[in-house]
Amino acid sequence: MYRFLLSWRWAITTLIALLLIPACIKLGFWQLHRHEARVARNNLIGQSLKAAPVAFDSLSTGPGFAVPTDLTWRTVTATGEYDTAHEIVIRRRTAADGSTIGFFVVTPLRLADGRGEVLVNRGWVDSGPDALQYPPVPAAPSGQVTVTGRLRADETHASSGIPDRGGLPDRQFMLINSEQQAKADGTAVLGGYLELASSVPSPAAAPQALPEPEHSDIGPHMAYAIQWWLFAALVPVGLLIMIRREARDRRAGAAVAALAAEPVAEPVP
């Protein structure tokens, strides 16, 4: 009764089912790895934000320094004077509400110890009616200031997915990148940048503050992993149900055919 499994239709169906099982298992592990990466990122951010602040230039060793992953989001401080002549804005950035596109305001801070400058992302401003024009930006504090914020790695196209295109209006850029600014300004800029959280003294007006990174949401990846593994377990069950249903239907059909083939008894006069 199960000889139908030797047909091309059932051979292809079985092959597809056998291929689906390892595919679902692999997709489940892919989601598991995404979950583990998300948890590790959240732990890193949480630990970094709770760590005692350290001097920016004690972590960034100089121009061209690549901020390692384990130092990203570390709370850092820097003391110096803002170099407003080299202030820039970063295009197409989203406000804290997630719905408005504008600019990040990046102002170099000339360190008091003379080691160079630190790029400080002071926050977000609206682009105004014309995104090709330099936007109205609250002035950076004059004189010596001490800023505290989060250490960030230089943005690149590879790390951010943002294309770094040229031909932009004066003092407008697509990425926050210390090497790019060092070349543009001819100054010594320490690698990485500082995402401002507070400043002493506090300015009378400032760009919209950047919120702390979200580090409590682990996302749906573990649930997705479990779903893929359940699919892998259900594939053979579904295949078995289909085979038994086919066999049952064939038995029923054979019984009907046998009944129809039986001779009909003639009535006795």
Rank of each mutant, 00 (worst) to 15 (best):
248 R>D: 15
226 I>C: 12
204 A>G: 14
191 G>H: 03
218 I>A: 01
60 S>P: 02
188 A>W: 02
258 A>P: 01
3 R>Q: 04
91 R>I: 04
36 E>W: 12
231 F>P: 01
149 G>R: 02
165 R>C: 01
99 S>V: 11
185 D>M: 07
219 G>E: 04
50 K>Q: 13
149 G>C: 10
212 E>T: 13
156 T>P: 03
46 G>E: 03
235 V>D: 05
252 A>K: 14
269 P>F: 13
159 S>A: 12
34 R>L: 13
155 E>T: 06
202 S>P: 11
233 A>E: 06
10 W>C: 15
203 P>S: 11
216 S>H: 06
113 D>V: 08
53 P>V: 04
222 M>W: 06
19 L>F: 10
176 I>T: 15
174 M>V: 11
136 P>C: 09
207 P>R: 05
54 V>Q: 07
102 G>L: 09
24 C>W: 12
183 K>L: 06
16 I>Q: 05
16 I>F: 11
63 P>I: 11
19 L>V: 15
228 W>G: 01
156 T>D: 12
109 L>Q: 08
189 V>P: 07
59 L>Q: 08
83 D>Q: 04
243 I>G: 06
33 H>A: 10
27 L>H: 09
122 R>D: 09
103 F>D: 03
259 L>E: 15
134 Y>I: 02
101 I>M: 14
20 L>D: 02
27 L>E: 03
19 L>M: 13
71 L>G: 08
218 I>H: 11
69 T>P: 01
4 F>L: 06
226 I>L: 14
139 A>M: 11
122 R>V: 00
28 G>H: 04
128 G>K: 07
163 P>H: 01
50 K>Y: 07
93 R>C: 10
160 S>Y: 11
177 N>E: 13
100 T>W: 08
144 Q>L: 12
3 R>W: 04
150 R>M: 09
188 A>F: 08
70 D>V: 05
192 G>P: 04
103 F>L: 06
82 Y>P: 06
40 A>D: 14
193 Y>T: 09
222 M>G: 03
209 A>R: 09
71 L>N: 05
268 V>H: 01
207 P>Y: 03
8 W>Q: 15
183 K>P: 06
200 V>F: 07
171 R>C: 07
85 A>D: 15
227 Q>P: 10
268 V>Y: 04
216 S>F: 00
190 L>P: 07
230 L>N: 11
127 S>G: 15
251 R>I: 11
109 L>P: 02
56 F>D: 03
